[in-house]
Design a protein around this nucleic acid. Structure first.
Lengths: 355, 355
DNA sequence: ATCGCTCATGTGATCGCTCACATTGGAGTC
DNA sequence: GACTCCAATGTGAGCGATCACATGAGCGAT
């Protein structure tokens, strides 16, 4: 009853082959009230209504109120498409992502969305397969077609950046979680530094045979963490005991263990917590006690990490803060330093090497 | 042609504000080519260009090609705002979410996005605090202001639904992960059934003192799982040994253990995997061996669950499929049954009770 | 030929809003 | 009191697309 006459706008049907079904005689669309309707109701001109909408300074309070009342009465809602058309500003921020529900990216995305909305922007997401340039292209095109005013790239694979680099995007963008050489601004979680923290911790404990369970080769994140690992080792005259790449999943960490847990290796720095979990699993199956026989340090500090067995020493990343800063930077309101400092979180999975 | 007469106002190089970052808001708007430009270049009328854009049937292939060439040459990109204005169809699907980077919702959202894009829709997200009606309202208003054509609600708290119920949304919507009494269509993961599966498994093993580590009271998901748990127990003449609610996090599972792991309890059904992890952690600290002293069954089958120690028996949910179906249903293309069947996954965390 | 019909294309209006500019009335200045 | 000036509001144009309708060509049937 409450839904008056309005036949459901029926977003349906016309998709594949529009058979002119909309030609019906009674087919008037329910278009809501416009500025003109509000103007008439309030006894002012459409432009005055527009001024109310845009908080124009020189408006008599009484007039503004009249207009606001009329809006409320009519249930007026500004048409963003019309506004976008004339201002050529869509007020939409695009998020280009390749991550599928992983903890870090998802956290950052949520933070970007919140920050954007607070500033009056909307957020539109396109998820691509980060390793398929065609897919990245398609997702990017989709966002560009929307006339996004800015792009937040939460898709840290090298191929994505390469694609971005090649395209004349014509839209400001920031990339998250990576220090790149690209033109767009970058808001990096300083993963290189974080990896050095983790590695230094293991070395300080006395480990000399330290292996690295890396992320997939094409991810910039993985590269940063790997390079931090190597840099810290090098600064101490050590060499990597082994390096094996996973795909961020716990499964891959479990698999990689076979290559990593060779005799002599007393510590592993894992490029994320999930893979570390897989590694812990494998270690347990091999009869290796953590941390007595093997130290493991993760990366990210997911909410679960402290409940692994043993609790995982890891590097905390502030994904949400990075997301917020990314947006601030994108909108040109960035005073904050571009990089978010990681911190080492000590738990039970790291200890000095056996005797 | 007077339209192109305007000499470019173009006060480029405005204030040389050396903020460094790409400014999202600076002055000149380089409006791209329009249908008229393309039409001129192709030697046809603007309407013909529009026909090409909309795949109109009666177009000579040669003409279409000419237009396409002109488009490519000019780098033409249709203005969706203009189209939306005249058609009053935004081609935007809104996602109302309250989850912050959790595995299930994030998976579903990604699936919705992919499915929407494949159908030519864009997806815009708004995340709300599910327990604050004002926040839900705000997020919803934001999406409605965008003139979304449909709404996917991935926000399974009761207050959210209540808010939705109260509002005359005027837009078709589906809710995910819940069987509600609401007007909109619902695509449910059949969590009630899943919970019965889990509970039946424990009962079949011989457990009689089964506790439930529930989700937060206000979540419909939590309610479904809880009711499935209770229904299965009731059908066997059993009573819940204990019920304690967490907040989905591993931390809360760990905390809840104190209340749950009282003497006599030999099995716990946890409403999700993360809380089960916290529970495993707590059990280990209490010296309880899983599964010998205590059986634990989780819910969701996150990718990490098999790497917990011991591997977690849990109920697999197909979040992605639910997301796809939600969208299909929203667009009225749903023939598939609305509910997605869960499946029990047996691993090492469940066993018969100690004699 | 002439009619009628469909195909292929063109013309003008229109969507809801903001922009640039025109128009008021009253306060302040001399 | 005639002047400027600014605050407050109105008028008309136009953003870039689609829609409704008009038009002209081609073709078979009368």
């Amino acid at each position: 009853m409450s839904r008056t006459e309005t036949p459901p706008p029926d977003p349906v049907g016309t998709t594949p082959d529009a058979t002119g079904a909309t030609s019906g005689a009674s087919g008037t669309k329910p278009r809501g009230p416009s500025v003109f309707d509000v103007a008439k109701a309030a006894g002012v001109s459409h432009q005055t209504v527009s001024r109310v909408l845009n908080d124009h300074p020189s408006l008599r309070p009484a007039t503004r109120q009249k207009v606001l009342d009329a809006m409320r009465e009519l249930g007026y809602r500004p048409n963003l498409a019309a506004r976008a058309l004339v201002t050529s500003r869509s007020r939409i921020i695009g998020i280009l992502s390749t991550a599928h529900g992983e903890y870090g990216p998802a956290s950052s995305i949520a933070a970007v969305e919140a920050a954007a909305r607070a500033r009056g922007y909307s957020v539109s997401i396109a998820t691509a397969d980060g390793f398929d340039p065609a897919s990245v292209n398609e997702a990017l095109e989709h966002l560009l077609a929307l006339s996004v005013e800015g792009l937040v790239v939460v898709a840290p694979q090298t191929p994505v950046l390469a694609t971005l680099e090649r395209l004349p995007i014509g839209v400001p963008f920031v990339t998250l979680q990576t220090l790149s050489t690209l033109d767009g601004s970058t808001v990096a979680l300083d993963q290189h530094h974080g990896a050095r923290l983790a590695t230094a911790h293991l070395a300080d404990l006395g480990h000399t045979a330290i292996a690295h369970l890396a992320g997939p080769a094409d991810w910039i994140d993985a590269e940063s963490r790997d390079s931090g690992f190597r840099a810290e080792l090098a600064s101490r005259g050590l060499r990597a005991a082994a390096v094996e790449a996973g795909d961020w999943s716990a499964d891959s960490g479990y698999e990689a263990a076979r290559a990593l847990l060779r005799p002599g290796v007393t510590a592993v720095f894992s490029a994320n917590d999930q893979m570390a979990l897989g590694l812990l699993h494998a270690a347990a199956e091999c009869g290796l006690a953590v941390p007595d026989d093997l130290s493991v340090v993760g990366f990210d500090d997911t909410p679960e990490a402290r409940h692994y067995r043993p609790g995982l020493t890891t590097v905390r990343q502030n994904f949400a803060e990075a997301g917020r800063r990314a947006l601030a930077r994108l909108l040109g309101q960035a005073e904050a330093p571009p990089s978010v400092e990681p911190a080492l979180v000590l738990r039970g999975s790291s200890a000095p090497p056996p005797h």
